[in-house]
Nucleic acid binder design. Structure first.
Length: 478
RNA sequence: CGGGGUGUGGCGCAGCCCGGCAGCGCGCUUGCUUCGGGAGCAAGAGGUCGCGAGUUCAAAUCUCGCCACCCCGACCA
């Protein structure tokens, strides 16, 4: 079932990532190339993410709905940029019911087109706006190269699609949801993110502007972890969605869309994982505490079990979620390793020695020291420790990012940076797509974001040296 | 699409050059002893060697073809 250990991060990051996912039972390869099965442990994490995000969406006034997976091919073609961006990765159904279809059906790569085809029927007046809808769904994108969680042919995500009366309102919504993502990433995933605007070259096909959260992974590469798009009137025009404003004038509707996907699980793995396996932030762990009872004799078992009840009650009263691993056919040592591999944030060991002393042993997943704690108040103590883990994981990730972020002004230094260790480079850029492309061709680094907070001083473009006021963050990315 | 790799009991691999009984480790089953960092002993079960042709008395092994998956690069959440 399981062989000992996984490849070290330093030895081969990619092998480490794959082995970690397979061995911690987050996911497994499916029969179809590029597809994966999300196993219960991985899906439980996704459910946690989903629940956390869903609450944040509801709190900002959104409602869930569900639109179909099959989209008439002609819909995709209605928005010029959208077609151009997505046609290479579409999967198309041409036959069904034993016959060739009159019009091929596209398996949705994203749902703007089908949603806006419906919004046309639902929006007539400014009183119908804003329309704030989200859907949890699967999408299909036929990618050339896939990687577990980071880029799979089919993935699960959430896509918000909102309609507004004014550009200002829509832009506000775009940034509101970007900030929801930032908050979620930092507070729930313990993953610090940069936020900002994407360059023209990297924006969503069909958007006026794309914004993103970007995180630094354990190998110092960037991962785009969530996007929020201001779509302007592009889709309203493509699908002829107009409303009558207060002055009784017809106007096209303004749109946004925003999404995060199961890629976030990959982000979690690469932000916090270590050579022993996954390290889960308490708020996203399927359960927070794994309890491992230890005994030799029946008599000891009876004593330990009744002691466990006291621990359970204390944990329950502090709303700490836990699981007791009382399997008899594996040794405690085996369980330690297995639950560390699976990333459960806190472990409690209870054996005859502890029963006698009215104590227990606590071990944080993000550290390794064993700490002896008294039985009394173990629930509250666990909560305190879990909060500390959540916070420390964030700080550790943030420090790592800061340690690997460098202000770079000269292109020679820049090239050298990406030939050696790499990381995030803070530089200036003149705004020319030519410079952007040349930097990418020569160093593999791309502009990840144009941060909102721009420094006072001006600089010079990292590539052409022209004076520039645009401060950007470069990195190699997934 | 280019480059590389792999395909042999559930998992990881050896065997292939040089054709001759299909092996090893882990896991699994049963029993006993174990149990505070991946337990020990004993006895078992388990395989169309990715698929298809060919060469041969004989193919996991040689030849030709095909397929699948993984990794690295170009496209992307």
């Amino acid at each position: 079932m399981m062989s000992k250990g996984i490849t070290g991060k330093e030895t081969d990051y990619s092998a480490w990532y794959n082995e970690l996912i397979l061995k911690s039972e987050l996911a497994d390869y499916a029969p179809v190339k590029g597809c994966m099965v999300i196993r219960p442990h991985g899906y439980a994490i996704w459910e946690k993410m989903r629940d956390g995000l869903d609450k944040m969406f509801k709190d900002t006034g959104h409602e869930n709905a569900y639109f179909p997976m099959l989209i008439p091919e002609s819909f995709i073609k209605k928005e010029a940029e959208h077609v151009k961006g997505f046609s290479p990765e579409l999967a198309v159904v041409t036959h069904a019911g034993g016959k060739e279809l009159e019009e091929p059906l596209v398996l949705r790569p994203t749902s703007e087109t089908i949603i806006w085809s419906m919004y046309k029927n639902w929006i007539h007046s400014h009183r119908d706006l804003p329309l704030l809808i989200n859907q949890w769904a699967n999408v299909i994108r036929w990618e050339m190269r896939t990687r577990l969680f980071l880029r799979t042919t089919e993935f699960l995500w959430q896509e918000g699609h909102t309609a507004h009366a004014t550009a200002e309102e829509a832009e506000e919504e775009t940034l509101r949801m970007l900030n929801v993502y930032k908050t979620f990433a930092e507070e729930q995933m313990a993953m610090p993110v940069l936020i900002g605007k994407k360059t023209e070259a990297q924006k969503f096909a069909g958007a006026v502007a794309t914004y993103a959260i970007e995180a630094m992974m354990g190998d110092k590469k960037a991962l785009q972890s969530g996007t929020s798009h201001f779509l302007g009137q592009n889709f309203a025009k493509a699908f002829d969605v107009k409303f009558q404003n207060e002055e009784n004038k017809e106007e096209y509707v303004y749109a946004t869309s925003w999404g995060v996907s199961t890629r976030l699980i990959g982000a979690l793995v690469m932000t916090h994982g270590d050579d022993k396996g996954l390290v889960l932030p308490p708020r996203l762990s399927p359960f927070e505490v794994i309890i491992i009872p230890i005994w030799k004799t029946d008599e000891e078992e009876t004593k330990v079990r009744s002691f466990l009840e006291k621990i359970e009650n204390s944990l329950k009263s502090a709303d700490v979620t836990f699981k007791i691993d009382d399997r008899t056919y594996v040794t405690p040592g085996w369980k330690f390793n297995e639950w560390e591999l699976k990333g459960i944030p806190l472990r409690i060991e209870v054996g005859p020695r502890d029963v006698k002393e009215n104590q227990l042993v606590m071990v944080r997943r993000d550290q390794s020291e064993k700490a002896v704690k008294h039985l009394e108040g173990v629930g509250k103590e666990s909560r305190t420790v879990l909060d500390a883990i959540q916070k420390d994981m964030f700080e550790k990730a943030k420090t790592f990012r800061e340690d690997n972020t460098k202000k770079i002004n000269s292109y020679d230094d820049f090239k050298e940076f990406y030939e050696s260790d790499g990381g995030f480079a803070e530089s200036y850029w003149c705004g020319s797509p030519v410079c952007e492309q040349e930097v990418q061709d020569e160093t593999k680094a791309t502009i990840r974001v144009i941060p909102f907070e721009q420094p006072e001083e001006r600089g010079s473009c990292i590539k052409c040296g022209k004076e520039s006021e645009t401060f950007v963050v470069f990195a190699k990315s997934y």
